[in-house]
Design a protein around this nucleic acid. Structure first.
Length: 257
DNA sequence: ATGGCAATGTTTCATTGA
């Protein structure tokens, strides 16, 4: 069972790449962020032809999340947003597939530490933590996947000194990330020995990718009940190459049957 | 100190992202 998360930065623009990538990697479940796609325009039929059913929660221009699952695996109990939180921004969708609860998240960016958007990010993370706390009780087999907009520690930053205290790397954001792990979730990437300087996002500007000036901000968290099954967690860096890439690479976790 | 790239729609520039 292969579960992936990918911030596609516009599903409309990235659809040809997504289809080619699905064919190549054959993931069972895919969590998408920044679809920037209204529900009425979601390319449901095209994805179905490619072998994937989908559920989606989108809006015009910004944000937007979706979960794809192989057509033969029933997708149930779809829930949009965080329970008991009237967030106008489409950032969370959850579904149950093959006995696993999958929560797809697009955590706010936060703009700069101390800004109004930063306060929104921090409040949003507290709401998410509360929601996940309830979710993991109801669904012990839980995967939380997506763009967290947080680099958990200095290993996840190309230039830790330059980024210290900055947005995506501040102590407050890192504490929020640890509050998710404290629910019994593991950062699947760190369950395995990894080479240094592996990232999931690179700035489009200043040859960010060519110089490997990146951050690891996209994550796949897995609950205790899934840990023994977890056999690999990787980042598909190749997907950042070539024509019209997203600025994020897909992240993938493999669970044994 | 600032913009640099990409996507969107409010479109020939402003806003947002990270």
């Amino acid at each position: 069972m292969k579960i992936a998360a990918w911030n596609v930065n516009s599903l409309n623009v990235r659809l040809p790449r997504l289809l080619a990538w699905l064919k190549k990697q054959m993931p069972d479940i895919v969590c998408l962020q920044e679809t920037k796609c209204e529900n009425t325009r979601f390319p449901q039929d095209i994805l179905l032809e490619a072998g994937y059913q989908s559920c989606f929660h989108g809006q015009k221009t910004y944000n937007g999340v979706a979960i794809l699952a192989r057509r033969e695996m029933p997708m149930a109990e779809v829930l949009c947003g965080i329970e008991d939180y009237d967030d106008p921004q489409a950032r969370v969708i959850a579904a149950t597939v093959a006995g696993i609860r999958v929560v797809c998240v697009y955590v706010p960016n936060g703009q700069s530490v101390g800004s109004e958007k930063f306060e929104y990010k921090m409040q949003w993370c507290r709401r998410l933590r509360r929601y996940l706390q309830e979710t993991v009780i109801q669904y012990p087999k839980l995967v939380v996947a997506g763009d967290f907009n947080i680099a958990p520690d200095d290993r996840d930053v190309h230039d830790p000194d330059a980024w210290r205290g900055q947005i995506l790397c501040s102590d407050e954001e890192r504490a929020a990330f640890r509050s998710f792990l404290a629910l019994g979730l593991a950062d699947s990437f760190r369950l395995f020995e990894q080479p240094p300087n592996v990232f999931s996002w690179w700035d489009y500007r200043q040859l960010g990718f060519a110089k490997n000036r990146g951050l690891r901000i996209d994550h796949l968290l897995i609950s205790e009940a899934l840990r023994e099954q977890c056999v690999a967690s990787v980042i598909d860096r190749d997907e950042r190459r070539g024509e019209k890439p997203s600025d994020h690479a897909p992240v993938m976790v493999t669970l044994s049957e």
